[in-house]
Design a protein around this nucleic acid. Structure first.
Length: 290
DNA sequence: CACTTGACCTGTCCGC
DNA sequence: TGCGGACAGGTCAAGT
């Protein structure tokens, strides 16, 4: 589900809601979601001092140098429900998910000084890591993670160098590979490739200088716009208060197969590429010679 | 080594 | 209405 804009939107929300509160305890309704020995030692209470993110991995900074890291994978959610939670009537357009929690997808519940934090995950792919001081650096995922695109800004030269490091791979497969670049997933890969008018199967090594550059500009544009609109919600994603993101209204190709390309009018098609559903304009995005 | 496929899970949607 | 199959925003292990 969540790619960088969704995870960053969530992090910002959680930071404002949780900073300064203590986690008083935690109840695992589905224990496999919890990874690491630290969970067993009943370390609570622990104060939440702040938050961080790299790629799609999010963490809360806890007292004593500990961290609570979360990877949401496909369907994970972290939703805070305060004691003063606004209660809207059922069916109200801004009714919050929190009104009905816990639900059948709730896997972990954290008890806080003021309110509760629910970890929901329909598909049970996500994981929560409680880590001792220095533990973040030991996570294999973080050790092999490529650079951020927006923060700090990745210069065009370095961007091109990352892509050319895997010259034989299709450009979409590379965008999805977190070792090449951090934070891009299926939605923003399709959107950026359309904006740069590049076919997803083009080998990375064959991209012209100008094509590399326009792909980088497209990624910056797409990711920034999504951040501005609280990310994308296709089916599951919600922010720290249970609200959906609105970026999908701006999507040009993702989940729009059969609709006209906004640039040339040709019908958007959906193919399979790097094992993932892939949306593109067959006229604007010219396939490489086989 | 480089790259692709299957596995991990549950829910939903689509065709018969 | 019911049922089987395909598919879903991510990552890792195993396979080719």
């Amino acid at each position: 589900m969540p790619e960088m804009p969704e995870v960053e939107t969530l992090r910002r929300g959680l930071d404002g809601l949780l900073r300064g509160q203590r986690i008083l305890g935690c109840q695992a309704l589905w224990p496999p979601a919890l990874v690491g020995k630290s969970w067993e030692h009943d370390p609570w209470p622990l104060e939440i001092l702040g938050s961080g993110r790299r790629g799609k991995l999010l963490w809360l900074k806890l007292e004593g140098g500990m961290s609570l890291a979360v990877h949401l994978r496909m369907t994970g959610q972290l939703v805070f429900v305060g004691p003063d939670q606004d209660r809207f009537g059922a069916g109200h357009p801004t009714a919050s998910l929190g009104d009905n929690l816990p639900d059948s997808s709730t896997r972990v519940v954290f008890r806080l000084d003021r309110g509760q934090l629910f970890y929901n995950d329909q598909r049970k792919f996500g994981r929560l890591f409680l880590l001792p001081p220095g533990g973040l650096e030991t996570l294999p995922f973080l050790q092999t993670l490529g650079p951020e695109i927006l923060d700090p800004p990745l210069g065009p030269e370095e961007f091109c160098r990352r892509l050319k490091a895997w010259p034989g791979r299709g450009i979409k497969a590379l965008l999805l590979d977190q070792r090449a670049l951090a934070g891009v997933g299926n939605i923003y890969a399709d959107e950026a490739l359309w904006a740069a008018a590049l076919h997803p199967l083009r080998p990375a090594g064959g991209l012209l200088e100008a094509e590399c550059r326009s792909l980088q500009e497209a990624l910056v544009q797409v990711l920034s716009t999504s951040l501005d609109h609280g990310g994308s919600s296709l089916r599951n994603y919600v922010d720290a208060r249970g609200k959906m993101g609105s970026y999908m209204a701006f999507a040009k190709v993702f989940d729009r197969q059969g609709q006209p390309c906004p640039r040339c009018g040709a019908p958007i098609v959906k193919i399979r590429c790097a094992g993932r559903g892939t949306h593109l304009c067959p006229r604007c995005q010219v396939a490489p010679e086989a």
